[in-house]
């Protein structure tokens, strides 16, 4: 088994994407997240969060993705915490280009 790369520090002003070795399986409450590299499981607890993770790659930053997905202002901190957790476990990764 290859060792996982060090997790990136989550900065919502930067461009992100769902990690390439990660698959999302839709579930009634959101999605199951699976990392083929480190074989870790995680869960996305809302459908909006699923849309956010899936569309990170289409927007210039994580912040912009939240706006585009219509995440209400009051819920932004919770979403940013969820994304930071996903970054820590390598489920999302920083993207080079815009």
């Amino acid at each position: 088994m290859t060792s996982a790369p060090a997790a990136a520090v989550f900065d919502p002003a930067l461009p992100w994407r769902r990690a390439r070795s990660v698959a999302l399986r839709p579930e009634p409450f959101g999605a199951l997240v699976y990392h083929f590299g480190n074989r870790k499981l995680s869960f996305l607890k809302s459908k909006t969060l699923v849309t956010v993770v899936e569309t990170l790659a289409d927007h210039p930053s994580a912040d912009a993705t939240l706006v585009a997905c219509g995440v209400p202002e009051a819920q932004r901190p919770a979403y940013l915490r969820a994304l930071a957790d996903l970054a820590r476990s390598n489920m999302i990764e920083p993207r080079e280009s815009l």
């Binding site: 399986r25 579930e27 009634p28 409450f29 499981l41 607890k45």
Partner: peptide
């Protein structure tokens, strides 16, 4: 009826589309 939101363990009680 499955609730929306809440704890994962409560969601799991209603089952998943495929086993974990």
């Amino acid at each position: 009826q499955r609730p929306t939101g809440g704890r994962l363990v409560d969601q799991f009680e209603y089952g998943l589309d495929a086993p974990i």
